[in-house]
């Protein structure tokens, strides 16, 4: 269980956010994907970010 190079929720939330500002590296993408596969909380957060983006966009109209 030497998972030190894998992402935890703290890191995953950062990657999910920064992914809309810059391209993630291949490594980051893979680590994030692996985390999301086994973490419902972060999948929820991912959905919430999409919602925030859409809500903000509509708010500006």
């Amino acid at each position: 269980m030497a998972d030190s190079d894998k992402v935890d929720c703290r890191k995953a939330s950062w990657l999910l956010s920064v992914a809309s500002e810059r391209e993630l590296t291949a490594q980051e993408r893979q680590a994030l994907r692996e985390h999301l596969d086994r973490c419902l909380k972060c999948r929820n957060y991912e959905g919430q970010l999409k919602f925030l983006r859409e809500a903000s966009r509509r708010f500006g109209k």
Partner: peptide
């Protein structure tokens, strides 16, 4: 404040129904 020392959410984001 948001994440514990193991990097987990202190308060887990929930599934938002029909956002």
């Amino acid at each position: 404040e948001l994440f514990d020392e193991t990097g987990h959410w202190r308060v887990a984001p929930r599934t938002w129904s029909d956002p």
